[in-house]
């Protein structure tokens, strides 16, 4: 797996540095004003970039035909997929950590710093990102990158709309504490979902005809 990690590290350094710089800049915007500090986009976007890194890398692999070439090299398909999960998780964790530092700074600056808030943000951002990774990886492995990316885009929109509707419904129906608790419980099965997604991705990718 070391070879695959090194290959992706070179690729990230050459092709995706700008995406991370953009994400870093976005995460620093809330420092500018209190109004901006309340906008969730500046929290969520950099984390999405981190957890989506494997998605970009798989697209790049398809573009250069590395995906086919890798199957001619001594890497098992399970190893190739596991490496992409690992990259997604590492990049996601780094993004979440960075965002939390920036948010901590922002809250401190505007006088609302609370450790509980930072902890809750860490929980929702990391698990939310993991769910994103758990969604696109099996789709890319089942349909192939070319088709999978569109299926993912469509499903993501559908799921986001459903999630927003559900959270809106719950926020009206439940008192604040119960709402937070319910949302917390909703994200609890994330590790199991991630594990299932990893298993399915390996199965799907194992069956995929590459370069046909």
């Amino acid at each position: 797996m070391g070879a695959l990690l090194l290959k992706d590290w070179y690729l990230i350094r050459k092709k995706y540095t700008w995406i991370f710089l953009l994400a870093l800049t976005v995460s620093a915007i809330p420092l500018l004003s209190e109004t901006l500090a309340r906008n969730g986009f500046f929290l969520v976007y950099p984390c999405c970039v981190g957890f989506n890194l494997s998605f970009y890398l798989m697209q790049a692999d398809r573009g250069s035909r590395w995906d086919v070439y890798a199957c001619a090299l001594p890497y098992s398909r399970a190893m190739q997929i596991s490496e992409k999960y690992l990259i997604g998780l590492i990049a996601g964790a780094v993004s979440v950590a960075w965002v939390l530092v920036m948010q901590g700074w922002t809250l401190h600056r505007f006088g609302g710093f609370q450790w509980e808030a930072i902890g809750a943000m860490a929980y929702f951002l990391f698990f939310g990102g993991c769910l994103l990774l758990s969604l696109y990886m099996p789709l890319m492995c089942l349909f192939g990158v070319s088709t999978g990316q569109y299926v993912f885009g469509f499903l993501l929109v559908v799921l986001l709309v459903l999630f927003l509707l559900l959270s809106l419904l719950l926020s009206f129906a439940l008192p604040y504490e119960m709402f937070s608790e319910t949302m917390f419980k909703l994200f609890l099965p994330t590790p199991a979902v991630l594990g299932l997604s990893w298993y399915l991705s390996i199965r799907f990718y194992g069956r995929l005809d590459l370069g046909a």
Binding site: Y10, L11, K14, A60, D61, W66, V68, Y69, L73
Partner: peptide, 13 residues
């Protein structure tokens, strides 16, 4: 040792 009809090395390498 394999050489495929398209060598799949990433462009920036």
């Amino acid at each position: 040792g394999v050489v495929l009809d398209e060598v799949g090395i990433p462009d920036c390498f």
